[in-house]
Design a protein around this nucleic acid. Sequence first.
RNA 1: GGGGGUGUAGCUCAAUUUUGGUUAGAGCAUCGGACUGUCGAUCCGAAGGUUGCGGGUUCGAGUCCCGUCACCCUCGCCA
Length: 584
Amino acid sequence: MRTHTCGELAAAGVGKKVKLCGWVANWRDHGEIVFIDLRDRYGITQLVFRMENDKELTGRASKIRSETVLAITGTVAARDKANINPDMPTGEIEIAVESIDMEVPAETPPFEVVDAPKADELVRLEHRYLDLRSKPMQEATIAKHKVLQATRRYFDGEDFLEIETPVLWKSTPEGARDYLVPARKSPGRFFALPQSPQMHKQLFMISGFDRYFQIARCFRDEDLRYDRQPEFTQIDIEMSFVSLENIYSVLEGLMAELTKVAAGKNVSAPFPRMTYNEAMERYGTDKPDTRFGLEIVDATNVAKKTEFKVFQNAGMVAGIRAPGGAALSRKEIDALPKAVADTGAKGVAWLKKTADGISGGVSKFFPEPIREELFSVFGGAEENDLFCFVADSPKVARASSGVLRGLLAKRLGLIDEEVFNYLWVTDFPLFEEDDEGKLSPAHHPFTSFPTEYLEQLERGEDLFSIPSHAADLVLNGVELGSGSIRIHDPAMQSRVFKALGFSEQELEDRFGFFLNAFRYGAPPHGGFALGFDRVLMCLLGRESIRDFIAFPKTTAAKCPLTGAPTSVSDQQLEELRLKIRKDD
RNA sequence: GGGGGUGUAGCUCAAUUUUGGUUAGAGCAUCGGACUGUCGAUCCGAAGGUUGCGGGUUCGAGUCCCGUCACCCUCGCCA
């Protein structure tokens, strides 16, 4: 039906007879002359109709509206110099249309499909097929394709095998809430959709597929965010006979390639590394944004010398020195405590460095010589610095300072948006404490740890201090993924499960098939999983992973296009032996 | 489940900060007309509203109060 796309014709094509197909992006009717911009995914080409050439055709063209599908035949014509549009790749030419071969009319769309759709996201999602015609969505969708292909090329080149894993899988008690699928052939029983192919890929290692990858769909029935969807994609890898070093270097190669493909930037490997403890100390978070300084300073000692009771009673006084922060208004500073309230901080103390001393906030508590001591703790002080302090337990003080750090950097324009700062955060603890003070895996229960801690695990002593062979990959303060060396010794695995409080029976029911496999020759192995949608979001500088999911769900986990989830017929329920409770 | 924000024409927004007052306005889109070079065309004109929904206060509610729904952000949650 077409000889060319709407993006490829240029001056070299002048004189050619062509057939183009596409959607009407815009139209301009001047009476004697009519222009139509024809759009496909390759670009936009201007069509021109003249009354003097064909009155009937031009009259017909003048009635065509946006989003109509057209197929036309015409001749490529050079534009007069004055009429060249330098902003369009096809701006040197236009098509003098001779016939309209097909015209599929479109109703007036609910929003205008333009370069930057202004419509509310909900309206766009209800008509996602239209939204996807827009430039930003076309770009995001095409970028995703390119990154997917680059990923496959990269792993294929590194001798990885792409192997699929089941989507109908087994519910496990650990981790996120499962999406369940009733099993008709086994009434009262359920499949679960996988939260990740974790156990599958470890079984592949036992099978001898020593380098595996998959672009895997994962499902988690938890609350949504801008960076969390109930179904999302992971780049999932697993390798045998490797150390973490091998895993780092494979991923560094991948990310360098993807950064180039998606963002056109070169990043150099190896990526910097930082231990978990160091990250928490210097940045108050396990995913530090290293594009700017403002590191957390332990000002406890000097703060305790002041008469300020809040400082004297605190376990720690954490401080941030923000150059230029004195420009913040009183209103902005007063808003800081609320911004960090979620971390548990009860307040934010502050003072400003002025030309002749300090002022505002808690400055009166810092007379000389404590003032000089304060400055030296922060490595000096310049005019217009803002000093912020959070006094609390060390945990809260650091966490809220970490949040403050990000806020101040953003407000003061200290973040270079052009930079891609990758960072390995290493040596995560093996366990963490859940809300009830119970032990839970910090990464997942298959994570290995240095053997010298086996005894400590056995004794159940100070378990939170045991380090693991697990690391996260962080980009500009966003956690892209995590991985670890796994336990391949069944005895060690059982000990971890026991420490986590699983009974023999539970272990057998939930993980029996998995633990059994390790009895038949399990190689040492490890792997990693990257949140693919997040990688794209970061590399393309988008606000949400929804941009990279063709049909995403709302924060209430509903599909605005189809209305799913919906109720089902009584017959369907009957077949599954399910009954819906009506009372709630 | 908790907190915050938003909801007015098909779309994006206004409607005198806190403070209720005549017929709820504008831009874009749509429809009609004009125009030979536009490219976000321009000009003239028209049509378009259950102010998310329900209740309340009031002589009078887009505006105040209560409830509810949807969307977005956030805490919890996401091994």
